[in-house]
Amino acid sequence: MTDRLNEVIDDDATTSAWIGHDFAKRGCVDFISNGGTAHVASSYWSLSGTSWKPSRPSFDPFGTCNAIEASMVLQMKVTRQPAMMPHFRFSEIDSAKSLIYSLEAEHHGREAAMFIGYVVRRNFNHRNWAAVNELLETILIDELTRWSMVALLRSTFSARGVLPAWKRLLLDVSSRIEVEERATVLRGLL
């Protein structure tokens, strides 16, 4: 599997492949570790347009990410956002938003939420509040499901005091969630 992964990366040593590798390596645990999501994962990893499909996701919590990692590389390669890929950096929020929209459009809300958490943490770790605020301020929530909406709010909650856009995003999200569900979905945020 590792050979296959290396082959994928060597075949296409572009920024997109590298980013897919990095995100998958650091973020894959998030994908497979939620909700006992074998069904979600298996649907996610079955990659249309590629010749290689892992039979089932596997994950070694203390080692490399093998199948999932390779799958993410392939997923990134088949994501149809060519304009964003060559310029993608974690601090470049436009690129991050493009990937979030793409994942949401392909009905991968859980994965979009995980990617949001990843982007937010990476920027917070470098105290890059402005980038996160930019993300909150400019993201088009009409393109999102509640997975991404809530993930944006939860993952940035602790820093809301230094994120002027947080409150407005909360109000926007709140207005898009049914009244009877707000208390549950936005518990502790309102």
Binding site: D30, N34, G35, A113, M114, G117, V150, R154, V185
Partner: peptide, 8 residues
């Protein structure tokens, strides 16, 4: 969703 965010 919150659970998934915390797991990550």
């Amino acid at each position: 969703i919150t659970a998934a965010t915390i797991v990550g």
